[in-house]
Design a protein around this nucleic acid. Structure first.
Length: 432
RNA sequence: GUGGGUAUAGUUCAGUUGGUUAGAGCGCCAGAUUGUGGCUCUGGAGAUCGUGGGUUCAAGUCCCACUACUCACCCCA
């Protein structure tokens, strides 16, 4: 137990961190091009925030939150999603007073949900996400979808499907809900047990049911796209024509509904079929009522969350994972304590000059040191044994082969920089 | 929360109808080469066989429970 990570959590081993760095760099770069700036919010928030934003009838709130009371008697909750904290920040700091829209992203934000883990699902996972406040045009929706696809494309992912839908607004959705409920109520006895339940709680989600018996009923269910108001329809049309104008493929999927209550109009998912049944790599949509819901002005917003782990899984399955190589430029061999001291000093001078250097930290024979240097993948090994110290030199061996050079210690840094093809940035080690 | 599968060395896996001292590859350490890596050869360390109980003369192997991992449902990134 002591040496076991908690259920549903994953360590990121040193050998894997390069993967993360790579996609983080891509995300930062693309966000900058689109004019989004990074925002960081606390890992926990007042529980009330999520009840209000995510919705107190959702599964996330009802059974998946890590909620606890702190020593001051406050109920706090570890983030079960990324949007609420950013909305709170937007309102608390009055960012709505700035010129709009406000464009923010968050990166590597840990998200906690008490779920049963499976392929592509963890209790702690990490999200990259975008939030855009203060503009209601569908061009914004198109912009963030475009950003998401750019990130995925830059990462090298192929074959992901973009699904979009509109679930209407506060004006037109209630009417559709009534229609849908009436339709399913007529066919209630043919629905699966779970859907009979959903008929009461959230009939929209019946559309998402995979039960075969339900599928027949769903096939003839009224479509939300036929019921949305003129404004929503116009909004959805503009989104589609924006996406078409940049040649982006998408599929209108009237069944995607999303599990968070705050969505309005646009919802979308970017899905992989290669990482198991939890294939949604990115999901999001518009949330025009959310800012007002948590106490801010009536301001529209749109955003998405992208699962870092799922993205990495797709990259892995497509063999796009990079092999990390933390290769030192040089390893410094030594045979005794005096040599180790000199090696330490040389390593420091090399590191100051921009060279990645490692040295013998004791206890290894020369043979073992070379073996180790080989495993590290260094280009050069410098030898500082007794013979060399007496003569005031180091021997430098090119690990690809060739004769060893003898270099006076005083000019070793400069010579090594030259061999490595690096610019000299600092003075040579003095008085050695 | 529900269901299926799995659990043997750091790791990937063998282990016969229950049978006496639980093996291998890779990795790690060392030697062959007393100051020189890769290739090869030799040797070594490393396993309370997930935990607890039961059946049996005898359990890694059979039975039960628990735990963990894993896949799936639900839901979501």
């Amino acid at each position: 137990m002591l040496t076991k990570a908690p259920k549903g959590t994953k360590d990121i081993l040193p050998e894997a961190s390069a993967q993360w760095h790579r996609i983080e760099d891509i995300m930062r770069d693309i966000c900058a091009r689109y004019g989004f700036m990074e925002a960081r919010t606390p890992v926990f928030e007042h529980t009330e925030l999520f009840l209000r934003s995510v919705g107190d009838t959702t599964d996330i709130v009802q059974k998946e939150m890590y909620t606890f009371e702190d020593k001051g008697g406050r109920s706090v909750t570890l983030k079960p999603e990324g949007t609420a904290g950013v909305v709170r920040m937007f309102v608390e700091h009055g960012l709505f007073n700035l010129a709009q829209p406000t464009k923010m992203y968050y990166l590597n934000t840990p998200v906690f949900r008490y779920e049963n883990p499976q392929a592509g699902r963890l209790r702690e996972h990490h999200q990259f996400g975008i939030e855009l406040f203060g503009a209601k045009s569908a061009t914004c929706d198109a912009e963030i979808i475009s950003l998401a696809m750019d990130v995925l494309k830059s990462a090298g992912v192929e074959g992901l499907a973009l699904n979009i839908n509109s679930i209407g607004c506060m004006e037109c959705r209630p009417g559709y809900n009534t229609k849908l409920k009436a339709y399913f109520a007529e066919n209630e006895n043919r629905l699966c047990n779970m859907c009979k339940n959903r008929l009461q709680t959230n009939p929209l989600r019946i559309l998402d049911c995979k039960d075969e018996g339900c599928a027949d009923i769903i096939a003839d269910a009224p479509l939300i796209l036929d019921s949305i108001c003129g404004e929503c329809a116009g909004h959805f049309d503009l989104l589609q024509s924006c996406l078409q104008s940049i040649g982006m493929d998408f599929r209108i999927n009237p069944k995607i509904v999303r599990g968070l209550d705050y969505y309005t109009k646009t919802v979308f998912e970017i899905i992989s079929t290669e990482i198991g049944s939890q294939g949604t790599v990115c999901g999001g949509g518009r949330y025009d009522g959310l800012v007002a819901e948590v106490g801010g002005p009536d301001m529209p917003g749109v955003g998405f969350g992208m699962g870092m782990e799922r993205l990495l899984m797709v990259l892995q399955s497509q063999n796009k994972a990079i092999t990390p190589l933390n290769a030192y430029d040089i390893y410094i061999c030594s045979m005794d304590e005096e040599g180790a001291k000199q090696a330490f000093r040389l390593a420091k001078a090399l590191r100051d000059a921009g060279v990645s250097a490692e040295l013998n930290h004791g206890g290894k024979s020369m043979k073992a040191q070379f073996k180790y240097a080989d495993k590290l993948g260094v280009s050069y090994v410098a030898i500082m044994g007794q013979d060399e110290l007496e003569k005031g030199i180091i021997k430098l061996k090119d690990m690809k082969g060739g004769p060893e050079d003898e270099l006076p210690i005083g000019t070793a840094v400069e010579a090594i920089l030259k061999m490595l093809g690096k610019d000299k940035r600092f003075d040579d080690i003095e008085g050695v």
